[in-house]
């Protein structure tokens, strides 16, 4: 499914604030309520967009962000990344090229919480050979408006 101009305008508006009413969206874009409602339903059903309640990490106390890079045996890589992705503290999980074959991004309330996830869970797999943790002390930019809405089968 392709996004046309109308879809793009709706998405641009809702990226700022998705709680505005359909009527307000319609008014601002000069289109009908019905069209807005239709397009929103289509966007969500096609998995092209979703709405999320994002919070400020400092205000919520999630001040520790760590990039965790893993070297694992190839045959456990998929299982490890899928299981780790279930943690709500993990916002990004991927199978990658390079020195490491798994990369995770963790956002937690403390270093202790990050360490617990790594030691009690990640390291519990026998195929996980090495774990490198990079604490990200400053976030200069982090785009919030892009996500993986639905995975391909």
């Amino acid at each position: 499914m392709r996004l046309d101009e109308v879809d793009r305008e709706i998405v641009a508006l809702l990226k700022e604030d998705a709680r505005i009413s359909n009527r307000e969206t319609a008014r601002r874009l000069g289109i009908s309520d019905t069209l807005v409602r239709k397009r929103l339903r289509r966007l969500s059903e096609s998995g092209l967009a979703k709405i999320t309640a994002v919070t400020d990490y400092v205000a919520m106390g999630h001040t520790t962000t760590a990039l965790v890079r893993v070297v694992s045996a190839p045959k456990v890589a998929r299982e490890v990344v899928e299981e780790m992705a279930k943690f709500e503290q993990i916002s990004f999980a991927a199978l990658t090229t390079g020195r490491f074959n798994i990369v995770l991004l963790l956002s937690a309330r403390s270093r202790r919480e990050v360490a617990d996830i790594i030691h009690k869970h990640l390291r519990s797999w026998s195929g996980v050979h090495m774990v490198e943790t990079l604490e990200l002390v400053e976030t200069v930019k982090h785009r919030l408006d892009v996500a993986l809405v639905v995975r391909d089968k």
Binding site: T52, A53, V54, T55, D56, Y57, V58, A59, M60, H62, V81, E82, A85, E88, I90, S91, F92, A93, A94, L95, T96, T97, G98, R99, F100, V103, S107, T139, H142, R143, L144, V146, A147, L148, R151
Partner: peptide, 20 residues
């Protein structure tokens, strides 16, 4: 610089950001 590429993104779900 050193580049690694994602062969498969399993999860991308940002819920915390620098809003302020």
């Amino acid at each position: 610089y050193e580049i690694s590429t994602a062969l498969e993104v399993v999860k991308l779900d940002p819920r915390f950001g620098k809003l302020r």
